[in-house]
Amino acid sequence: MAKPGRIPDFRKLYPEASEEVIEVLRQTERKMQYQEYDLKMEQIVVDQEEQIVDIIPSREDSLERLMDKEVQFQEASITVEEVILQRLEVQRLHRALSLLSEDERYLIEQIYFEEKTEREMAKELGVYHNAVHKKKQLILKKLKNFLKNF
């Protein structure tokens, strides 16, 4: 790739290439320069008549540079509405879990809350892994139906 702002003479580099190919090479080179330099570099514009210097910031900036400029970032905070919706979802889930049988609830608790694997549960229950997987899928389907009705 050429230096910023300079497009190489593709006619000299590829004398046997057609004009269409040369034009595509020029356009591609310009697009690459735009992506690699124009977007990332701030530009200085000097107005000679009014003696004013304007700095146009880059469209893309690094985190380090923004931190050096002490740019403040907005915190990703949860709104009150989101907190309430989360609590309502948790309540609905607890109600749905309470409708499961003791065996079903135990399996779900072990897999999702105690982070046991299906294989560990199969070994503990003395059944095949596929049986635990199928049972888990049926329980999840049952929970989804419960949640739809709430």
Rank of each mutant, 00 (worst) to 15 (best):
R87P: 00
D61L: 10
I55Q: 13
I108C: 02
L140A: 05
V83E: 11
R95D: 09
L63E: 12
I52S: 02
Q51N: 15
E19A: 06
K31C: 12
E70D: 15
E109Y: 13
D9L: 04
R26K: 14
F146D: 00
K141N: 15
K134C: 05
E60Y: 14
T117H: 03
E19H: 05
S62R: 15
A131N: 10
G5Y: 08
E89P: 00
E82P: 00
E109D: 13
R95K: 14
Y106R: 12
P4M: 12
D38V: 12
E36Y: 14
M121K: 02
L107S: 00
E36M: 11
Q110L: 09
R65D: 11
K136S: 03
R105P: 01
A131L: 07
R105F: 03
R6W: 09
Q27V: 13
R105I: 04
K136D: 02
L140I: 09
P57A: 07
E114I: 01
I55Y: 12
Q72N: 11
S62G: 15
L100F: 01
Y128P: 03
K142V: 00
N130D: 11
K40T: 14
V132S: 01
E23C: 06
K3Q: 08
A122T: 02
F150E: 04
R92H: 07
L125V: 08
I44D: 12
R119V: 08
V45W: 09
I22T: 06
D54F: 15
L147H: 01
L143T: 02
L147S: 02
V24K: 15
V80S: 14
Q27P: 05
K148Q: 07
I108H: 02
T79L: 09
S101E: 06
I44Y: 14
E104Q: 06
L93F: 09
E23F: 09
L63M: 11
Q91K: 13
D47Q: 04
V21W: 04
L138S: 11
N145V: 00
Q72V: 14
R87S: 09
K116Q: 07
L88E: 14
G126H: 08
K142W: 02
R26E: 11
V71I: 14
D9W: 05
E23I: 06
